[in-house]
Design a protein around this nucleic acid. Structure first.
Length: 519
DNA sequence: CTAGATGTTGCAAGA
DNA sequence: CTCTTGCAACATCTA
């Protein structure tokens, strides 16, 4: 008998899907025509993530469900997912030899750790004569290509970015999932020693995770896409304007496709072209507020994130205004654990911790509150809390949006402060949302639901809920705190522009003034 | 050079 | 209920 043919690995990292997976399709192309080879779909549980990225129960469950779904889908096609543990460099060093690997493919990941990791794996592959093929697919466009089309400048406004992608034209159309993988299966017995991770291995405690409102996986992702972006829903899709959607409706007012796009269960290009189908020939809203605009926002933060050093930090980050934030554990914990005494803020943070998804404008409210609005805490601290709890946590989007909301970058109107009382009232005057997430306040009359500390003590006693005992008093007076913070912001902005002017003078080429003197 | 317009999504008060 | 305005007012681009 001839020996086993060589192997080709497709390494799943994000991109946990079979549809529109360019790198997976690339893995199915023979190195030489007529080659017979074995496809090895691999996922690696890399301890670096456990050590360096905060990941709460809900997102852990989402990832596990996504892996289970991926394995199911692969099995239906005659393949299966091989889950390995350890540092990818060490894992591949062993697997390349063991399986006689000649090629490995993966989807581009532009986050700092992933880049470094992929660089190391590439050099091991080169040493062991394994061909590496990296394919786009997580974003609509190749991010280096976008930068080159913008003359090497990082676009810093959405308007700039929109005109850039508009001048480029549509992104690539999505590719179909492979139909059958049987001919790539190992002829001998399938390797069984490494299986899908168990709940224990992922430190997943079902009792500690919340209701599963958004199950992970490509199957769910495509189902949700069909439900939301379809002709039956055409009016809603075409008229969608993000700022007009509600942050505190009891059912999400937006698509909640973000967790699926983040994990790559849903291809952003599949999303884009599905929107195109529903838009086609009809009047529809436009970026930045439209649904397509939401994909552009994602692409925008990815582009800036991929090309800005220390993008997720304040210090050493060129685009981030340096602001003397305070570090107060008590305030941070009150915010994180819904103990600020502002029901709207506390309700949003409860929804975040329990369910893992909150509306974009709810994120704005709590982010503004923690940073420039009320608590004057660093956006990096808030970013870590979102990192822990969000199902759709995404390195680029999280850092970018926190800088935005804290007026550290992109956004400069620091005097526009969200009110923790007034903002929610606009879309939910009776406080149904607060009652759902803070049941201890359920019986408060509408007039006090956003400001329970204003209810007369007699009312509090009748309800059996004493503010300051059963629910906290507000930690700060919003009026006073926000005014003080606006003043601090004014000073920080002035210092920053002074520093910028100094820097420009130091590093700019000879000024016109000097040139004139030379003439 | 200056002035004016614009930037995905503020609030409160008053017509 | 919708619209306008004052609040105190940034950075950036264009004319």
């Amino acid at each position: 008998m001839s020996k086993e043919p060589y192997s080709v690995i497709h390494w799943f990292r994000r991109g946990l899907r079979l549809h529109d997976n360019a790198a997976l399709l690339e893995a199915l192309k023979p190195i030489n025509d007529g080659d017979r080879f074995i496809l090895r779909p691999v996922y690696i549980i890399d301890p670096w993530y456990k050590a360096n990225v905060k990941c709460g129960q809900n997102r852990t469950r989402f990832l596990l469900q996504s892996l289970q779904d991926l394995d199911n889908s692969l099995r239906k096609l005659g393949s299966s997912l091989y889950v390995a543990r350890g540092d990818p460099v060490e894992v591949f060093e062993k697997l390349f030899t063991k399986w006689e690997v000649k090629k490995i493919t993966w989807e581009v990941n532009t986050e700092p750790y992933a880049r470094e990791r992929d660089r190391k794996v590439s050099s091991v592959a080169k040493m062991l004569k394994v061909k590496v093929t990296e394919c786009d697919g997580h974003t609509l466009y190749n991010l280096d290509f976008l930068l080159s089309k913008n003359n090497g400048n990082v676009p810093l406004t959405q308007q700039k970015f929109t005109s850039l992608v508009t001048s480029i034209g549509h992104p690539a159309k999505p590719q179909k999932a492979p139909e059958c993988l049987k001919k790539f299966a190992p002829s001998s017995e399938v390797e069984k020693e490494l299986e899908l991770p168990s709940h224990d291995e992922f430190y997943l405690d079902e009792s500690a995770s919340g209701k599963c409102l958004f199950p992970g996986g490509e199957t769910e992702a495509l189902k949700r896409l069909e439900e939301k972006i379809c002709f039956e829903n055409a009016k809603w899709v075409r008229e969608f304007e993000k700022p007009l959607t509600s942050p505190n409706s009891l059912e999400p007012s937006t698509t909640v496709l973000s967790p699926y796009v983040t994990h790559g269960c849903l291809s952003s290009r599949t999303f884009y072209w599905k929107l195109f189908d529903v838009y086609e020939g009809a009047k529809h809203s436009k970026p930045p507020v439209s649904l397509k605009g939401q994909l552009f926002w994602r692409e925008f933060f990815y582009t800036v994130g991929a090309h800005t050093e220390n993008f997720d930090k304040m210090v050493g980050n060129k685009i981030c205004r340096q602001i003397p934030w305070e570090s107060n554990e008590e305030k941070l914990n009150a915010w994180k654990n819904s103990q600020t005494g502002f029901p709207f803020i506390d309700a949003v943070m409860t929804q975040l911790r329990e369910e893992g998804w909150i509306h974009h404008l709810a994120r704005h409210s709590v982010a503004c509150f923690l940073t420039r609005g009320d608590f004057w805490q660093s956006w990096e601290k808030g970013k870590e809390v979102f990192e822990e709890y969000l199902l759709d946590h995404d390195w680029s989007l999280n850092a970018g949006n926190w800088m935005w909301m804290s007026a550290s970058a992109f956004f400069h109107h620091y005097y526009r402060v969200y009110s923790p009382v007034a903002f929610g009232k606009k879309t939910d005057p009776t406080g149904a949302y607060i009652r759902k997430y803070l049941p201890q306040l359920e019986k408060f009359p509408n007039e006090f639901i956003y400001e329970p500390w204003k209810a007369p003590l007699s009312v509090q006693k009748d309800l059996g809920v004493i503010i300051g005992v059963d629910y906290p008093k507000p930690i700060v007076d919003h009026g006073t705190a926000s005014k003080q913070n606006i003043t601090k912001m004014k000073a920080a902005f002035a210092a920053a522009s002074k520093a910028k002017a100094q820097n420009d003078a130091d590093f700019s080429p000879p000024s016109k003034k000097k040139s004139k003197l030379l003439e």
